[in-house]
Deep mutational scan, measured.
Amino acid sequence: MTFKLIINGKTLKGETTTEAVDAATAEKVFKQYANDNGLDGEWTYDDATKTFTITE
């Protein structure tokens, strides 16, 4: 399955995708991506669209 991450950061904005077997796996990938890029914010997830959002 394809999951999307929408980034609404103070300095970084955009989106990225990952292929994962489930939402929990995708969340780990996206949280590592956010950590690697210095993002810290509030996370939301929409199961209907398989989309995570981080807002700083």
Rank of each mutant, 00 (worst) to 15 (best):
M1S: 10
M1A: 14
T2H: 12
F3T: 00
K4D: 02
L5N: 01
L5P: 00
I6F: 11
I7C: 04
I7V: 09
N8E: 11
N8Q: 07
G9Y: 11
K10P: 14
K10R: 13
T11N: 14
T11M: 11
L12S: 08
L12P: 02
K13H: 10
G14N: 15
E15Y: 07
E15I: 03
T16E: 07
T17D: 09
T18E: 05
T18W: 07
E19F: 09
E19L: 07
E19V: 10
V21C: 04
A23G: 06
A24R: 14
A24I: 12
A24M: 15
T25E: 13
T25Y: 09
T25C: 05
A26I: 01
A26G: 02
E27W: 14
K28C: 04
V29Y: 15
F30N: 00
F30Y: 03
K31M: 11
K31P: 00
K31R: 08
K31T: 08
Q32T: 12
Q32L: 13
Q32K: 12
Y33E: 02
Y33Q: 04
Y33A: 03
Y33M: 06
A34R: 02
A34F: 03
A34Y: 03
A34C: 05
N35F: 11
D36Q: 10
D36S: 09
D36C: 05
D36W: 06
D36F: 13
D36M: 08
N37P: 01
G38Y: 11
G38H: 15
G38F: 10
L39F: 13
L39N: 03
L39Y: 04
G41F: 06
G41S: 02
E42K: 07
E42D: 14
W43F: 10
T44P: 00
T44A: 13
Y45T: 01
Y45R: 02
Y45V: 02
Y45I: 02
D46G: 02
D46V: 14
D46H: 10
D47F: 08
D47Q: 11
A48D: 09
A48H: 15
T49E: 09
K50G: 10
K50M: 09
T51E: 05
F52A: 01
F52D: 00
T53H: 05
T53F: 05
I54L: 11
T55D: 08
T55E: 08
T55N: 12
T55H: 08
E56D: 10
